[in-house]
């Protein structure tokens, strides 16, 4: 069974239809990149999957739990709090703008959810934070505050913050878009190493070359639809649809 399944997702903001009929699934251990022009709905799709937006209709399932299901009237009905809570434990999200808590030290950013929400002991949370910071190459920054870090370092902290809760699936919403080009490399390296560990990831990105290198599957979205989907060798190197070709030509030039 796939880890995440979204079927027939529709979402509008007022008159604007952003997601028209999206179905996708993510298997365990898979790295899926979502590419496409701005306004194609890829970020909205990610936000719907992570409960930051609600869908109008369609089903979203994480393992056995349904976040929402379409009722007979065609409207999505959301699960109760207990199920939503279980689902939130299942995924992590890395934001484009990091969204670290500025008043918390790097360590506390990572431990806050563990101690406050999951009621883990301080020692246990600190050990987890130390382990993750080591992995992110930020062991010496535990006591620093986000404002003292570079963008790349902040993004690595936010990845550590998401990983602290042992998610089964990790979403990235354009993780390198807010970074200087010279800093994107460090984030891509982290994602690459996570992919090696068989971390399930869904990455919305503009980094075509990276999407090709790291992902098992690439989804090209345009105008609220999935236009093309498949291994990067097919979608990026040998696109079938005209829209994908035009987009890739514009990007890769």
């Amino acid at each position: 069974m796939s880890l995440l399944e979204m079927s027939n997702i529709k979402k509008s903001f007022k008159q604007l239809e952003v997601l028209k009929d999206i179905s996708l699934h993510v298997n365990e251990g898979e790295v899926v990149s979502i590419i496409g022009p701005s306004g194609s709905g890829k970020s909205t799709l990610l936000r719907c999957a992570t409960t930051l937006e609600t869908v109008d209709s369609g089903d979203i399932r994480y393992l056995e739990d349904y976040l929402c299901r379409t009722n007979s009237g065609g409207r999505a009905v959301y699960a109760d709090k207990a199920v939503q809570r279980r689902i939130k434990e299942c995924f992590g999200l890395v934001f484009q703008n990091f969204n670290l808590f500025p008043h918390y030290s790097v360590k506390k950013n990572i431990t806050a959810a563990l101690t406050l929400v999951h009621k883990k002991s301080k020692a246990e949370a600190n050990a987890k934070a130390a382990e993750l910071l080591e992995k992110m190459g930020l062991a010496d920054k535990a006591g620093a505050y986000p404002c003292q870090l570079s963008g790349g370092q902040q993004q690595r902290v936010s990845i550590a913050r998401a990983l602290a809760l042992n998610p089964k699936i990790l979403f990235f919403d354009e993780p390198t878009s807010a970074l200087d080009p010279e800093l994107t490399g460090e984030i891509l390296k982290v994602i690459q190493s996570l992919a090696k560990e068989k971390m399930t990831m869904v990455i919305v990105t503009h980094e075509m070359l990276f999407a090709r290198d790291v992902s098992d599957r690439v989804i090209f979205m345009d105008d609220g639809y999935i236009i093309e989907e498949g291994p990067p060798k097919e979608v990026i190197d040998n696109p079938q649809s005209e829209r994908t070709k035009t987009f890739l030509n514009r990007i890769l030039e």
Partner: peptide, 23 residues
């Protein structure tokens, strides 16, 4: 306060009260 602070807390399942008090 940036809306991203609420979103980050939401994804970490802080809940409304904890988000307000701690973040």
């Amino acid at each position: 306060i940036a809306v991203g602070q609420y979103e980050a807390a939401n994804v970490l399942d802080f809940g409304r009260m904890r988000t307000f008090l701690h973040i």
